[in-house]
Amino acid sequence: MNKQKFIDKFIRAFFILIFLKILGLIAQLFHQSFWSVLGTLGIFIIVAVIILLVMVSLKDKERGDKGLGKRGGSGGSFYLENSLFDRIRSKYEELAEKYVSEGDYKKAAKVYMNLLQDNYRAAKTLENGGLYNEAAVIYLKKLNNKSDAAICYEKAKQYRKAIDLYKELEQKEKVGDLYKEMNDVKNAHIYYQMVADDFVGNNQMVKASLIYRKKMESPDEAQKVLLKGWEENKDAFNCLNNYFANIFDVKQLENQIQVLYKDTPTDKKIMYLEAMKYEFKKDPKLQSVARNIAYQIISEKVETHSEIVNELKHFNPDDQVILKDISRYKTGRNKMFRN
């Protein structure tokens, strides 16, 4: 089939399609509103005109190229078909962009979905235009994308639909957040508790404490889980540090520092010493208790961990003499071992 015959046949087939489409639109009047059908007709007319213009342009170009001779019928026809569809696609792209620039996101989405066969861009266009429910339907039914559909339903404040999808996706914290948004505290806490339990099961005690404190507004439960982490050696240092950080009354904090130290096993005392560095800097009122505990730990551990004497400078930052004492101690110890 040569190029001219291909174009002529395409134009004849296109006119048949136009006729069938018009019959279809007339039939739609029986079960859709007049204005909805009119809008669809408007888009169809624009698209039809674009395609005809492209075909006429190609036909004129073909007539002008007749004197140049043939280079192979099959290859030329294939090139012509590709060129034709590329041009039509380009026009569709321009039409969609025109609708977006005019703020008519629904028409733009129809072009992407029906003419360009690009459901994702159709959904994204609707989402960008604030048509979240419509976008969610495409994400869900055309793309099976539950995550983006849930986000759109959430933006549309269709919380029930979003919750159903987040449950399927097992995003428990998000489910809790949306129940909380709906003032359904009971169900919110059920899902937050699941999240906290999952964190505890994975030894992520600090994250579990944040769920209790920030989401469930249960500071006491948050402290319990941090204390559990410290005692059971599950991210122990961070649990201890956060436990102290959550006590805002200085007197109470001073008391807790001493109480916990009494029950601290020998193998965790160096870790406790590290925590005392933070508490020493936190408030001048805590410096005395932090320094005393530090001295006790250093004196207990110095025989087996001689380098621990360096920690003294953290609890005496303005004492230049202690630096010399540390230096003399290390020098004397080194001489002892050499001898």
Score class of each variant (00 low, 15 high):
215 K>T: 08
224 K>M: 10
329 Y>T: 03
83 S>L: 14
172 K>R: 12
244 F>Y: 12
312 L>Q: 11
30 F>A: 07
241 N>I: 14
310 N>M: 15
131 L>N: 10
129 G>A: 05
246 N>R: 14
294 A>Q: 02
143 L>Y: 04
259 V>Q: 07
12 R>K: 14
101 S>K: 13
145 N>A: 04
117 Q>K: 11
198 D>I: 02
13 A>E: 15
35 W>A: 08
147 S>R: 09
178 L>D: 01
70 K>P: 03
12 R>D: 14
16 I>M: 14
8 D>Y: 08
181 E>T: 09
249 D>A: 05
70 K>W: 11
170 E>H: 13
92 Y>W: 09
310 N>Q: 14
49 V>S: 06
224 K>L: 09
136 A>G: 00
66 K>C: 00
300 E>F: 03
294 A>K: 03
300 E>G: 02
188 A>F: 06
126 L>W: 00
282 K>T: 11
140 L>Y: 12
216 M>H: 09
29 L>T: 11
232 E>T: 00
167 K>V: 03
37 V>I: 09
134 E>W: 01
219 P>M: 10
111 V>L: 01
121 R>C: 02
275 A>M: 06
258 Q>S: 15
165 L>T: 02
135 A>K: 01
7 I>K: 01
169 L>S: 02
115 L>I: 00
21 K>S: 11
85 F>M: 10
230 W>L: 02
332 G>N: 15
164 D>E: 13
113 M>E: 02
61 K>W: 11
233 N>W: 05
316 N>Y: 14
150 A>G: 00
6 F>G: 04
27 A>L: 12
15 F>A: 15
238 N>S: 09
268 K>R: 15
27 A>E: 08
242 N>K: 11
3 K>T: 02
99 Y>R: 04
251 K>W: 09
62 E>L: 05
310 N>I: 12
49 V>R: 06
13 A>G: 15
294 A>S: 08
191 Y>N: 04
2 N>K: 11
52 L>D: 00
105 Y>V: 08
188 A>K: 04
150 A>K: 00
111 V>W: 01
117 Q>P: 00
331 T>I: 13
250 V>I: 15
78 F>H: 07
311 E>W: 04
252 Q>V: 14
239 C>W: 00
162 A>H: 07
99 Y>K: 07
85 F>I: 04
15 F>V: 15
139 Y>W: 05
12 R>C: 09
132 Y>P: 00
91 K>Q: 12
242 N>R: 07
141 K>H: 06
45 I>M: 12
272 Y>I: 08
168 E>F: 11
330 K>S: 12
169 L>Q: 06
142 K>N: 13
105 Y>C: 05
49 V>I: 15
314 H>M: 07
250 V>W: 03
165 L>M: 10
69 G>E: 10
217 E>H: 15
233 N>K: 12
68 L>E: 12
256 Q>K: 15
40 T>C: 10
175 V>R: 00
336 M>V: 05
96 A>Q: 05
60 D>A: 12
85 F>R: 09
80 L>S: 03
337 F>V: 08
241 N>R: 15
90 S>D: 13
35 W>Q: 10
304 T>G: 07
209 S>Q: 01
196 A>E: 06
226 L>R: 02
170 E>K: 15
83 S>F: 11
298 I>M: 06
117 Q>E: 06
220 D>K: 14
284 P>V: 13
159 Y>M: 04
102 E>A: 08
278 Y>A: 09
